[in-house]
Design a protein around this nucleic acid. Structure first.
Length: 421
RNA sequence: GUGGGUGUAGCUCAAUUGGUCAGAGUGCCGGGUUGUGGCCCCGGAGGUUGAGGGUUCAAGUCCCUUCACUCACCCCA
C-alpha cells in the first residue's frame, strides 16, 4: 500500500514546534493591540475575481500561482494567496469605516501559492497581516513600519535590514514607467530573456534583476525617486523624517519593486541575512486607490505581511521549556488502576495536569514514564496501600516520599500541588 | 515551468576498488531486587537500502527510467 503523504510544499507543524508558533502569535497580538490594531478573521477562500482585481491580472500570483477551482455551482473560488484583498473586502462589506474613520486591523493565518518550494517558500505558508485604513498621513506609514520593527526586535531577531522606497501614485508612476520602457527599449537586445519579457509585463521589475548585464543597463535608467510628483515626494521625505525621529535605521532602495500591482507611494521590506535566497521577512506598503478600486469608498490604506515560517527560521534558539506534568499516578494491580483512573480525571477537572499509564505495567516502567513526562510528583499505590488505606507521594526532584491517607486524598493533594508554585 | 544535489531502521548517519554489508548512535519496549525514575549494563522489536528495470557469478555500491525530498532560477512572505 502506497503511503499517503502531505501535499508538496505543505507542512505539518509538529507538537515540538507549536510552542514557538504560539509565542510568535502571542507577541504579535500583544504588540499590535497595544498600537490599537484589532484582529479580524477572514476566510481562506474567496471568489477568484477578488484576487484578480486586487492583485492584478498580469502578476505572477494571479497568472500562475493561485489555487483556483470551480465550485459545484460553477463559481470560481480561490484559496487566498495573500490577505489584504480579503480584509479590504470585509472592510467594505461590513462598512467598518462607518464606525471609525481610521480602522486598524490584523489577521493571522495560512496563505496558498502554487510555487516550487524551496528554503523559506512553501505552497501553504503563514502570514501575519496588518492593515490600516483611513489615514493617508506619512505618520501612519511610520507608525506601521515602527510597529513592524518593534515586533521583530521584541522577538529577538537580529541582523535586520529595513528598506524603503516610494513607488509613486497613479499620477507619477505611469509617467515614470513609460520613461523606463523608453529607456530599456534602447538596449532591449542586451537584456536577459526574462527582462525582455518584463519590459512588456512589469518593466519596473527589471530593476530587480540579478543578471549582471541587466544591472549595468538599468543603472543608467531614470529613477523613480527623481520623478515623483510633488505630493509623493513630500510624503516620502516626511516618512523618512519620522523614521529618523524614531531612530529607525533604514536604507533607501530605489530599485525595490513590489510584486503586487496595488502598491502606491511608500513601499518597504525587511530582510534578514540568515535566510537564504528568499530573504524577505516582511513586506508591505501603501495602497491608496485599492479600496475604491474594489468598490468601496475612496479610503487610503497601508499594510504589510510577515512570513511566519521565515520569521521562525531566524528566531534565536530558545530554551524551549520542556513540558511538565504535575502528578503521575502509578497504580499497581487492577483495583488500584481503577481508583487511579478516576483520580486522574478528577485532578484534571481541577486543572492539575495528571497522567497515568492505563496498561498494567511494572512499577519500574511506570516510574520511567513519570520521569519522561517530567512529572513533579508521583503518587504510588497498589493493593497493599489500598488495604492499609493510604498512598505514597514521591517528590521526583528530592526523592522524598511520604504517606498520605486515601480518605480525602484528592483535596489534600490538590492543596499540596497548588501550594507548590 | 527550468537547472543542480540527495534518497540506507521513527530520527541522525556508517558500509574500503561492486564480494557475509545490511550496521552504529539515538528513540521505543523489556530486563539487571519480589513494588520505585534520571546514570550505567544487557536484551528485543524495527529496513524488500525510495520504486521499477538492466549489467554481473555477485549491486546499497555501476547504468537507465520513475518518484520523492532539497537548493537555486522565475517570483514572493
Amino acid at each position: 500500500m502506497e503511503k499517503i503523504t502531505a501535499i508538496k510544499g505543505i507542512k505539518d507543524i509538529l507538537p515540538l514546534d507549536s510552542p514557538t508558533w504560539h509565542k510568535v502569535e502571542l507577541t504579535a497580538r500583544n504588540i499590535f493591540e497595544c498600537f490599537g490594531f484589532y484582529e479580524i478573521r477572514v476566510p481562506i477562500m474567496e471568489k477568484t475575481t477578488l484576487f484578480q482585481r486586487s492583485i492584478g491580472e498580469t502578476t505572477d500570483i494571479v497568472e500562475k500561482e493561485m489555487y483556483t477551482f470551480r465550485d459545484r455551482n460553477d463559481e470560481l473560488l480561490t484559496l487566498r494567496p495573500e490577505a489584504t484583498a480579503s480584509v479590504i473586502r470585509a472592510y467594505i462589506e461590513h462598512n467598518l469605516m462607518a464606525s471609525d474613520p481610521v480602522t486598524k486591523l490584523y489577521t493571522i493565518g495560512p496563505m496558498f501559492r502554487r510555487e516550487r518550494p524551496q528554503k523559506g517558500r512553501f505552497r501553504q505558508f503563514h502570514q501575519i497581516d496588518v492593515e490600516l485604513f483611513g489615514d493617508d498621513t506619512p505618520a501612519s506609514d511610520a507608525e506601521v513600519i515602527f510597529m513592524l520593527m518593534h515586533f521583530l526586535q521584541t522577538l529577538g531577531i537580529e541582523k535586520l535590514s529595513l528598506e524603503i522606497n516610494s513607488l509613486g501614485c497613479k499620477v507619477c508612476r505611469p509617467v515614470f514607467s513609460k520613461s523606463v520602457v523608453e529607456y530599456l527599449k534602447g538596449s532591449e537586445d542586451a537584456l536577459c530573456p526574462d527582462c525582455q519579457r518584463r519590459i512588456h509585463t512589469n518593466p519596473l521589475r527589471v530593476f530587480d534583476c540579478k543578471v549582471e548585464s541587466c544591472n549595468t543597463i538599468i543603472a543608467g535608467a531614470p529613477r523613480i525617486l527623481d520623478d515623483l510628483c510633488k505630493d509623493c515626494s513630500d510624503h516620502f521625505s516626511q516618512v523618512k523624517e519620522y523614521l529618523q525621529d524614531l531612530k529607525l535605521s533604514y536604507e533607501i532602495n530605489p530599485r525595490m519593486v513590489r510584486g503586487l500591482d496595488y502598491y502606491t507611494k511608500t513601499a518597504f521590506e525587511v530582510k534578514s541575512g540568515e535566510l537564504g535566497a528568499q530573504n524577505s521577512l516582511a513586506g508591505g506598503g501603501r495602497y491608496d486607490g485599492l479600496v475604491s478600486f474594489l468598490g468601496g469608498p475612496d479610503v487610503p490604506g497601508i499594510g504589510f505581511g510577515i512570513g511566519m515560517e521565515r520569521l521562525i527560521d531566524c528566531l534565536p534558539p530558545s530554551d524551549s521549556s520542556p513540558r511538565r506534568t504535575d502528578l503521575f499516578i502509578a497504580a499497581l494491580g487492577t483495583r488500584a488502576q481503577k481508583i487511579a483512573f478516576g483520580l486522574t480525571q478528577e485532578f484534571r477537572r481541577k486543572g492539575i495536569s495528571a497522567a497515568m499509564d492505563y496498561a498494567d505495567r511494572s512499577l519500574k516502567s511506570q516510574m520511567k514514564r513519570a520521569d519522561k513526562l517530567n512529572s513533579a510528583f508521583t503518587l504510588i499505590f497498589g493493593d497493599k496501600e489500598i488495604d492499609e488505606s493510604h498512598a505514597e507521594l514521591r517528590d521526583m526532584n528530592t526523592k522524598n516520599q511520604k504517606s498520605l491517607p486515601l480518605d480525602g486524598l484528592l483535596e489534600e493533594l490538590t492543596n499540596i500541588l497548588n501550594k507548590r508554585e
